[in-house]
Nucleic acid binder design. Structure first.
Lengths: 239, 239
DNA sequence: TACTCCAGTTTTGTATCCACTTCCCAATGC
DNA sequence: GCATTGGGAAGTGGATACAAAACTGGAGTA
């Protein structure tokens, strides 16, 4: 009897919209697709060697998540890469702070055993984070990655399916700003690490409200710090 | 000079995916498409007299927003209408509470003039709400509509584009539960109206934190009240 | 010179076709 | 009698063909 793996497509022909989506998203996040760029279905299709059908799906998703937008002014209703502005960053960070705050609150309301194992994990990540920031020329990718892992961890553990999905859709958009941020502010990372400790502590001792507040504070301050960078560097369409 | 309305399509040939999306969403929200129902592209296409292409777009959007989900056991990956559960309601309400809380906070941070005109509007809506609930056999649709308008108003005024978009995507899902709720709990509407007053007051006097808290309280309590209804009525796949 | 109008080209939106997967059911063999 | 398997049916995902709309540039005119 021949077994045809039921749903497991090792890498063969997984759903292409998702692949296109992920690659486009990475291009946007890493700035290789500059803000304001127009996205043309046929070009993308050619580039990824697929037809327009899966591209359309990917674009729709990107648009719904806010990476691209149908230009606001009356003219040119073609999809363009969303711009990077201070105002947008503020709003985005406050939303992420609120969503993760919700997860932080839930994490602090978990049974004691789970809380303490989670806290242990978070401490380990945060220490790596601290160490990575302490070396002479910090690796920005690594710093970003550790910060991201820190936040993701407690969300994964504590959030329900809806919050998780929302977080996964919204949070990566902050990456566009965070990458900018981390490359300019690696000296302020220590402050961020201290804020992380406040989060860990609130979770560990089981204070939901404090955890919520600590998460929000972290994101609020991040927005402030980022604001200084943007002011200094100017809001640029491309970097 | 002849002006050819640039993007404004009065009603002519609006995008069909959106129409299909809205109609399907209404069917789901009003329970005419029972939770668990399988949605078949070809059937829908026939029903709305369009081809499968726009239907596909609509389904994709519905799935992304959480109205439908791919059935878990690698069946034919056919999308089904999301079920209604108490746990889901709790999570959903807490998310909406958090998002609207953010908007409430922003509303309370507006300049005084805007705050007071907003407060005036909200008071008017809330009084209609109260009155509509006070009559012998309240009109459920009207009650729902007024509550919805109340919340939407301060979000529209105070939220930025991102928060607004998120709210519009998430909030309507609560409608599935709220319609159930309002038809069973019209006698508790007065309590809800009082909670609304706390929100209005916090916005009027400009206390962002209090506004945030008042909004969250309203949603938290709504989830509690809804929980009692569901417990009493049983979690039903269809109603 | 600036503005309008028009035609060509680009790009999106819709319909249809094809391939592949999954599902259901019935016939068959143990 | 029951499990297995094979074949058709149903359905989705991808590609392509076609139509409609929008942007482009340029030519003509006030």
């Amino acid at each position: 009897m021949m077994i045809r793996a039921p749903g497991a497509n090792p890498t063969g022909r997984a759903d292409r919209p998702k692949q296109v989506y992920e690659q486009l998203r990475d291009l946007i996040v890493h700035g290789r697709l500059a803000p304001g760029s127009r996205l043309v279905e046929t070009d993308i299709a050619k580039r990824f060697v697929v037809s327009r059908t899966p591209v359309r799906g990917a674009l729709q998703r990107l648009q719904q998540e806010g990476y691209i937008l149908d230009s606001p002014s009356m003219r040119q209703s073609r999809p363009t890469v969303a711009p990077l502005t201070l105002e947008d960053a503020r709003e985005l960070f406050s939303i992420v702070g609120e969503l993760e705050g919700l997860a932080g609150r839930a994490a602090a309301a978990l049974p004691q055993a789970k809380r303490s194992s989670l806290a242990k994990e978070l401490i380990a990540i945060n220490q790596d984070f601290r160490k990575a920031a302490a070396v002479p020329r910090p690796n920005h990718n690594r710093l970003f990655d550790l910060d991201e892992r820190f936040h993701r961890r407690y969300v994964e553990v504590a959030a329900g399916p809806r919050l998780l999905a929302l977080h996964q859709a919204v949070k990566p958009q902050a990456e566009r700003y965070e990458r900018l941020y981390v490359s300019f502010l690696s000296n302020e990372i220590q402050i961020s690490a201290r804020e992380h400790e406040a989060i860990i502590n609130a979770i560990e001792v089981g204070k939901p409200t404090a955890a919520h507040g600590a998460v929000q504070t972290n994101w609020h301050n991040a927005a402030e710090r980022l604001g200084r960078v943007i002011k200094r560097a100017g809001e640029r369409g491309r970097w």
